[in-house]
Amino acid sequence: MLWRAILLEKDKVYGRLILWIELAILVALIVLIDVLEFVVGQNLPGSAGALLVDGLTWPRALTTATQFAGSHTIGGILLVIVIGVITSREYSWRTFHLWLSRGVSRTLLLEAKCIVIFLLSLTIVVISLIISVILTGIFTLIVHNNLQIDQVQWGTIIQNFLITDYGLLPYAALTFVLTILSRSSIVSISVVLVLILLVEPVAYNVFMAWGGIGMQIVQYLPLGLEYALNSAVNSSTPSVFLRNVPAPWLAVLGIALYTLIFTGIAIWRFLYQEFTD
């Protein structure tokens, strides 16, 4: 039954126009930004231009190929919007009635939803990876006439891919639980976007610079944990706060905890929700 519920959820989500529009926006933005940077980099004299071009060609470009899918960039924003809209529709279209009154158990339905939301996050990361790889591959050919495959750090690419997707999960779960609690996409999307774009980065940067107890706390925000993972994998990550980030295993655990707690609350509240007329 779980398998069938997953197929149902998959059909629903991947049949929605909004998802494809979002993915098109994602692709368009990646192409736009990369091409713009590349053109600027090629025309900029001196080491600044060279640095920019180096970041847009293989092997360097491959390690940052999923950057636009990250939780605090386009990918995160699009994921939050699509989860909010798709989940709240189940209330406004009364389709939760439809599945639940057909004997689908509530926990099973939410499990299926969580799995498909995970697939959604993967979709966003994979698409941005593919587009970036193709695009920077073309740049590499333009600049170097070959792909410099021998210099590619496959391990780092895979690790970055996993970190990017993993870093999306707490926000996906938070959007999901807020939509379940409020039954409204406006509430959940706006709260999470304000958090991602404003509250969290500001709090993180301010308190990390400030130090003290504030810093002890904010380094355990999802943003801080993701940062810890990134800096553990990429030696090139700017290391302003490096002295004070949680250990990688703590970061992995922390992100998992956020995700599980938000998902748990969503399932628990959903079990007690009433679906009236």
Binding site: R89, H97, S101
Partner: peptide, 18 residues
């Protein structure tokens, strides 16, 4: 506990559909 509802077809109140 609602698994038996698999044998039931329903329509409740306002339309429930995508």
């Amino acid at each position: 506990h609602n698994t038996v509802l698999r044998r039931v077809g329903t329509m409740m109140g306002a339309p429930s559909m995508l």
